[in-house]
Amino acid sequence: MMNQPIKTSIPKPPSKIKNYVTLLLVLFLLWGSSIQTDSSLAELVAGFPNMMDLLNQMVPPNWGYFDNITDAMLETIRMAVIGTTFGAILAIPIALFSASNLIQNIWVFYPIRFILNLIRTVPDLLLASIFVAIFGLGSLPGILALMVFSIGLIAKLTYESIEAIDPGPLEAMEAVGANKIQLIVFGVIPQVAAHFISYVLYTFEINVRAAAVLGLVGAGGIGLFYNKTLGFLEYDKTSSIIIYTLVAVLAIDYISTKLREKLL
């Protein structure tokens, strides 16, 4: 088989069985998923004309509708501002109590982290649905959902930053007899403040996007208008809502990203 004799023996190729099994497993999962969800390309192709029809009705957008939804857009942003702010304020103590380098007691920081993890598993729209069931329609359930979501995210990111800070200054302060509060004010806060603000801005960006659809479950903001216009088959108005949201979200993202770049 060989052209020329090779002096030393050729090493054996490593077994590839593991790769094949993994590939097979993934294919099986995808195949099962498509059965479970009744996915079929044929259905997509069949539905394609409907979709084009819909897109046709969405273009051109009803530009005049912008006036009607400006208030709702502003309300959406307000909800995001308030939800993020309260979430951020509540996240501070939670983050401090979750940081293992500040609270050495594992019976404190592990349970708090566990609860934080639980909070982050529930999608914000489901939180909003629950709050709507409790408080009724309006922006209050939306704000509460955003707040709970913000606590989960900001507290996690912040406690991770706190754990990553340089222990030198803390040790130096402990050596001169500072108490816990002094330690936090003079040792921890200066080191994580910029990160914290950056996380708040980042969460705010996410919350603006989330707030724009909370209305679909009755939790206030511009999302309410999707239900209205889609219900009355006014697709040109739907597309103006989408465009308005896109512009607002992209503008806020841009400003927030610039601010975050300056901060860090």
């Binding site: 052209n3 020329q4 090779i6 002096k7 030393t8 050729i10």
Partner: peptide
């Protein structure tokens, strides 16, 4: 196969 052998020879 010749390519693979060539590669082995080169490594050798």
């Amino acid at each position: 196969n010749e390519d693979v052998n060539l590669a082995f020879e080169a490594l050798e």
